[in-house]
Design a binder for these strands. Structure first.
Lengths: 234, 234
DNA sequence: ACCTGAACACCGTTCAAGT
DNA sequence: ACCTGAACACCGTTCAAGT
């Protein structure tokens, strides 16, 4: 069998590799063709155009994001474990997640996690629209946090260093506060603190009955990867 | 006086207009030149290159983001008013804010708001590193929320409609929950709820003494707009 | 000090043509 | 059904040259 038969999957693999290693900007049709030792135009036959190539990569990422298994004894703990798992999954695929975000598919991507959160919110005694808002608040919180966090990491040396920006005068007489704000952020801890505060705030006043519910997790959410094949000639 | 003397500010104004009306992708050097009825290369003389042109726009936006005036009777209320004001400011400049974000300058942009939050956290009785974490948690929350929110607005018709994704089985026996999750999000309300829950969680247990503190607001944070002028020849 | 056109090395995409 | 090279209309950027 001749090895040289180019397939759509090979194209996607090579494209994903380029993105993973050099970022989305490095993914040009010509470079991709060179990587695959083929003509640029062959790629067009397999994936249509650059836009739908990116769409396909994004669809893959959405499918890749596996199911989330909540852990912990109480609903609050299990909600926090979902939040941590979500964050980790996002951080493992920064470029691709950014692309998902650009395409406005973030929500679709988080459906499995959302299901797990619904389960836990219910177990915590939240019901109806109240539970829905709690789930979404947490989801927004986690996704937003990771976006901000990634942003900080990509940031160049912040134009004026944070320390310069925080002179003593601004923090009143609170020396430790000023010092804490001048120090680099412990994003790990800040994340946990933020999530805990939010979860506490959301669950405050909810009926605390079903805390011993089995943290069984999410119904399987597999499949759904493919996005349409075949030629793209008009 | 000859009207035709091209200035750096004119270039920036035209560029900002292009971005505001057609998005960052529409800002090409050639189109900008056409807009200004000048040669492409003239623009290079004034702003160096595309990258530093974007930098300058971003610096402008950062400077534009005015000071924030907290309102409300209690520190908690004033913190929430800062959060709302921040969100509004972000939503008024979506393209430019996205550019600030891409450049990793989000933090720099929010310094004024951060100052206001520090003031209120202190008034609420938080001290030292604890106060610093509260301020940052809230800041991450607001910025992250707006990023997610913008993302949703740009989203195309979510591939499978949310309703299809939420069949009854997933929400257990909670019909209202399922219906609430299938309905479009009231992002305004979700934002307020989330912020309130977070603020409540953050302030829980803090000394509640100085609630009547004057909500005087932030020390002036003007100036700082310019970013270096002159020729860019190597 | 400011502006210009020509030129270079890139893009994504289309098309007519091959096998 | 798959692959190809040539060509088009765009990019950002540099350079040598004008005034």
């Amino acid at each position: 069998m001749a090895r040289s038969a180019l397939t759509r999957d090979e194209v996607l693999d090579a494209a994903a590799a380029l993105v993973r290693e050099h970022g989305p900007d490095a993914l040009t049709m010509r470079r991709l063709a060179a990587e695959l030792s083929t003509a640029v135009t062959s790629i067009y036959w397999h994936v249509g155009n650059r836009e739908s190539l990116l769409d396909a990569l994004v669809a893959r990422t959405v499918a890749d994001l596996g199911t989330i298994r909540p852990r912990g004894a109480t609903p609050a703990e299990r909600m926090m474990s979902v939040a941590r798992a979500l964050r980790r999954a996002l951080r493992e695929r920064p470029h691709l997640v950014a692309m998902v975000h650009e395409r406005g598919l973030t929500e679709r991507m988080f459906l499995p996690a959302q299901r797990a959160l619904v389960h836990e919110a219910h177990a915590a005694g939240l019901r109806g629209a109240h539970a829905a808002r709690a789930v979404r608040a947490l989801q927004f919180q986690v996704v937003g946090y990771v976006l901000v966090e990634r942003n900080r990491e990509r940031a160049p040396v912040q134009s004026p260093a944070e320390e310069e920006l925080w002179r003593r005068e601004d923090a009143g007489a609170d020396g430790p506060l000023a010092r804490a704000l001048a120090a680099p952020i412990d994003t790990e801890r800040l994340f946990v603190d933020s999530v805990r505060a939010l979860v506490d705030g959301l669950l405050a006043g909810a009926g605390e009955g079903a805390a011993a519910d089995t943290g069984k997790g999410v119904p399987g959410d597999t499949g759904d990867g493919d996005v349409g094949r075949g030629p793209y000639s008009q």
